[in-house]
Every structure is written in C-alpha cells, then in structure tokens.
Design a protein around this nucleic acid. Structure first.
Ligand SMILES: [Zn+2]
Ligand SMILES: [Zn+2]
Ligand SMILES: [Zn+2]
Ligand SMILES: [Zn+2]
Lengths: 144, 144
DNA sequence: CACACACCCTGTAGCCACTACAGGGTCAAG
DNA sequence: CTTGACCCTGTAGTGGCTACAGGGTGTGTG
C-alpha cells in the first residue's frame, strides 16, 4: 500500500502520515525499490487507532502512551483509565469555559441596539467597559 | 509607566505586551532616555480592550478589526455585529463538538470493567474497534 | 564604592498538530 | 514524448503566546 492509498483508507492527509512517522508515532514502513513507502495492514490499524484518539481530542503524547499500552498488554490498565479520566476532566473544563463564553457573547450581541455608526454601537461600548474601570461583563480577572 | 507596571495593571505577561507591539496590535510607546518603554494611560486602555476580547476568545486578527472600528467611530457598526455573530457561531460549533466528545469519553470510560491488565481493558478494546472495521463509538468519518 | 538583585532591552527558538510549499524523482496512459 | 498523478526530502508557516540567551540599567545595602 502506497502512502496515498493509506491516506485515503484512513481519511488522513498524506503529510499527516509522514508527520506521524517523523515524530515516531507511526513506525517507518519498508520501502519499494523506487523509494516509495510500502505500508502493511498493521500500519492502517495503528493509524486508525491514532485518528480515533485524535477524534477524542487526545493529545499525541497521550496517544503515544496508549499505543505503548497496546503494544504491551501485560501492563496495568489503571493508567489507561487515568488517562481517559484526565482527558474527560480537560474536556469538561473547556466545556464550562465555552458555555460561559457563549452566554457572554449573547449578552454582548444584545448590546447593539440598532446597527448605525460605531460610535453608538453598544457592543464596542461594552468591550470598552473595562477600559473605564466598569464592571466587566465577560471576565473579572482584572476587576478585583 | 514601565512595561512591568503595565503588565501588572493589565494582568498580562511582559512578553505578551512586547508580542502585541511586534504584531502591530499595541502601538509602540515612547522611550525613556534609558531605552525603556514608557506607556501612557491610552496604552492600558487599549491593552485592556485586547485582553477583554481575548477573554471572549476573539482571534487577534478580529481584535485588530474591532480596534479599527474603535479608532474610526464613523464606520457602520454592522460589521462589528457580524464579527460577534461569527464568533458566536464558532463558539457554538465548538460547544457541540465538545458535548459529543464528552458523551463519547464517558461511554469509553465505562468500558473498563475493572482495572486489570491492559489486554482485558475495555477502553483499549474500544479504541481499537475502528481497527477491526467495527462501528466506531466516537466518530463515523471513517465508518461510512 | 562594590555588589546583589530586580528590572529592562533585543532577538531567537520552542510549543502543538498539523499544513503548505519548493524542488526534485517515478510511473502509467495516451 | 509529453502530460499528469503520484512520490520523495526538507523547510517554513500557522496562532498566541512563552522561554530563554546575552546583554544593559537602576536601586538598595554593606
Ligand atoms: Zn473513531
Ligand atoms: Zn452595533
Ligand atoms: Zn473583560
Ligand atoms: Zn481499563
């Protein structure tokens, strides 16, 4: 299997595959006489695993860790669980932030009475608020 | 005001301020005879505005655009509104993705029956699923 | 006055996970 | 014989900072 075929099979860019090889995530395949990379089934499996993890937004360092567990199935899976847990924690933290952000943006959006000149726009007015030392609608880190 | 004082006042790293200056977001201040940057009140205002936007996760290019509106208050604020709207759209899209992600991670986390050897761990098992062509628990991009 | 220490300067490189060339080689179809 | 699709290596760019390295400056203490 040539790199383009592997890319198509795994729904990944060719450059991404070479990148994974460069950083040591995907083992270097054998080469055809012409120098082209020649992949076997195992490479597609491993690449699918990686992409699957990436779809879960798991960082590549953590994917590398998971791959080590896959390669050595005698290790205690508690570390796998912990890794997923910490990933879940990160995702939930980001979710909280984004939900706050959405509320703040909606509030901000409602500030614009009617589109007119920027001088009257409530949005810009609101964004300038912390400038004047007013209570900040979106974050209070600089309000304390 | 020296750069460290400005940094403290705006709750920003010194390097961040120099970075904003380098990319043209914050105007270069005048210099003291010793070469130190000497900031005026306007700089703190502008920096607060930028950090306020960044707290709303608005990209620096968009912040630059907003600053142009601030500087020229005669422009039509419809563009401001559109910018906030598109930001809101981005945030909501990311929210949707993250919510799916959280559900998938929870499902994945529940796969681990009891921590034991990695060979039996349902999490690794599940992460390997797309490898075997099974229906993918987390993303179907490579399942169709 | 000597020294420490905090702060300032410039410039460059690193982070993450790719993505996009530039500049070349290989191969099959028409 | 030419076209075009694919492959190769190596390097640089993205965003939004962050972290040095290698210097200069300013203040307080012994
Ligand atoms: Zn998947
Ligand atoms: Zn408006
Ligand atoms: Zn704010
Ligand atoms: Zn487990």
């Amino acid at each position: 299997m040539k790199i383009g075929e592997l890319a198509k099979a795994a729904h990944v860019e060719v450059e991404t595959i070479r990148y994974y090889e460069r950083i040591g995530l995907l083992p270097a395949p054998s080469r055809s006489p012409n120098g082209y990379r020649a992949y076997a089934g195992g490479h597609l499996e491993r690449l699918a695993f990686i992409r699957h993890c990436r779809a879960l937004d798991i960082a590549l360092v953590d994917v590398a860790q998971l791959l080590r567990f896959v390669d050595d199935p005698t290790t205690d899976c508690a570390e796998v669980d912990a890794l997923i847990d910490s990933q879940l924690t990160r995702v939930r933290a980001r979710l909280d932030t984004l939900q706050m952000l959405e509320r703040q943006l909606v509030a901000l959006r409602n500030q614009c009475g009617a589109p007119d000149r920027a001088a009257q726009c409530g949005i810009l007015h609101e964004l300038e608020a912390p400038t004047r030392g007013d209570v900040c609608v979106c974050h209070d880190e600089h309000a304390q």
